[in-house]
């Protein structure tokens, strides 16, 4: 059982609220046309990302998947940065060059994933290898959905981490759906925790919608990794309560299944736990909610005020100290003198 202080419990609650609230704001902005790309929510599975990331220390590294907004916020990413990135603004950390949860911020120990799934585990292994080469007791944590866990990169990454005994915690979010494909069609195992046996690593299965259960499992795995005993695979049993992205009405999901899982909503459950256990009063939780609301209001206002990037920014940054060539049709003199010497090079 987690030995968390009242402040830590309140923080966990706050991050759950912040995650859900930020994603609700994002959805609203998407519908207003402010988000030009895809929006993938973590509705219903926020506890897995929040509670696991909460175990990490400064100096550890984490790589989220698309449904791990909560982990980014726990690592210290400001909601404003998330909004700026989704809204493709100039002032975003990537300058408008990438989207979604793709944040690489060494200072926060964040490694951005890429859209081909499972690849970030392979890269995070390299971060963990650096920790080992330097003799540092730091650890890495990453996430993969049940779908993502079926890619070649995921298999190679799990095996590499296992063989090299790297300090890596992999959280397999068994949320039942990979886009519109049931997890039964992603793998033939009945219990997903069985996949760990193929890699010879310790594994745990946990109720991914139970904040404290996720926290306990993650803490045990992190401590094992920090002791130099290698990786752990944690299977978090959860459910994706919304379509793959905003364009997906989720018509393929049986209504009764959604209803059943709605009863296990992680935020509602944790709130009931805090109230029923006497850790928090309704008044205290209302103060937290108000704080989150105000933070998000300001963040949205800031993001909406930010400019779009200058078009020429597209040229910069492929290599260190290097920019791509400007196409001659984009130059001021579109009709150069036909003599060769005047041709743009």
């Amino acid at each position: 059982m987690a030995s968390l202080t009242r402040e830590e419990l309140r923080d966990l609650y706050r991050y759950l609220l912040l995650t859900r609230g930020l994603e609700e704001r994002l959805e609203r902005l998407f519908k207003q046309g402010q988000i030009v790309g895809g929006l993938y929510r973590s509705l219903g599975q926020e506890a897995t990302a929040v509670a696991s990331a909460f175990v990490l220390d400064d100096g550890d590294w984490l790589s989220p998947s698309i449904r791990d907004m909560g982990a980014l916020l726990v690592r210290g990413l400001h909601p404003r940065e998330v909004l700026l990135q989704y809204m493709a603004r100039e002032g975003s950390l990537c300058g408008g060059k990438d989207n979604t949860t793709h944040f690489t911020i060494p200072e926060l120990g964040l490694l951005g994933p890429i859209s081909p799934l499972g690849t970030q585990l392979c890269v995070l292994n390299g971060v963990a290898l650096a920790f080992r080469l330097r003799g540092e007791p730091r650890v890495c944590m990453t996430y993969q959905g049940d779908g993502a866990s079926r890619t070649g990169a995921s298999h190679e990454g799990l095996n590499f981490a296992a063989v090299q005994r790297l300090p890596v915690i992999v959280i397999l979010e068994h949320n039942r759906w990979a886009f519109a494909t049931r997890s039964e069609r992603e793998a033939a195992v009945e219990d997903w925790v069985d996949v760990a046996a193929a890699y010879g690593v310790p594994a745990a299965s946990v109720d991914g919608n139970d904040v404290l259960a996720v926290y306990d499992a993650a803490r045990e795995a992190v401590e094992r990794a920090r002791r130099g005993e290698g990786m752990t695979l944690i299977v978090a049993e959860t459910y994706r309560m919304i379509g793959h992205a905003q364009h997906d009405p989720q018509h393929y999901v049986p209504k009764e299944e959604l209803l059943e899982w709605r009863g296990r909503d992680p935020l509602a459950r944790f709130q009931s736990y805090l109230l029923e256990s006497g850790f928090e009063s309704r008044a205290a939780l209302a103060v937290v909610k108000e704080g989150v609301r105000r933070l998000l209001d300001t963040a949205v206002d800031d993001a909406l005020a930010a400019l779009m990037p200058e078009p020429e920014e597209a040229l910069a940054g492929t290599f260190a100290g290097d920019a791509a060539a400007v196409p001659w049709t984009r130059r001021t003199h579109v009709y150069p003198d036909l003599a060769h010497s005047a041709m743009p090079s």
Binding site: T104, P106, L111, T119, L121, C122, V123, L124, N125, G126, V127, A128, L129, A130, F131, R132, L133, G152, A153, E156, G157, N159, F160, V163, Q164
Partner: peptide, 28 residues
């Protein structure tokens, strides 16, 4: 063996690890 690492036959994992370790300042 810490600077000459025999790996599994996993080219994606090898290159992935190289990227990550390079982010941390190594030159694999």
């Amino acid at each position: 063996s810490s600077r000459v690492i025999d790996t599994p036959i996993s080219e994606a994992a090898i290159v992935g690890a190289a990227i990550g370790v390079a982010h941390m300042g190594f030159k694999p």
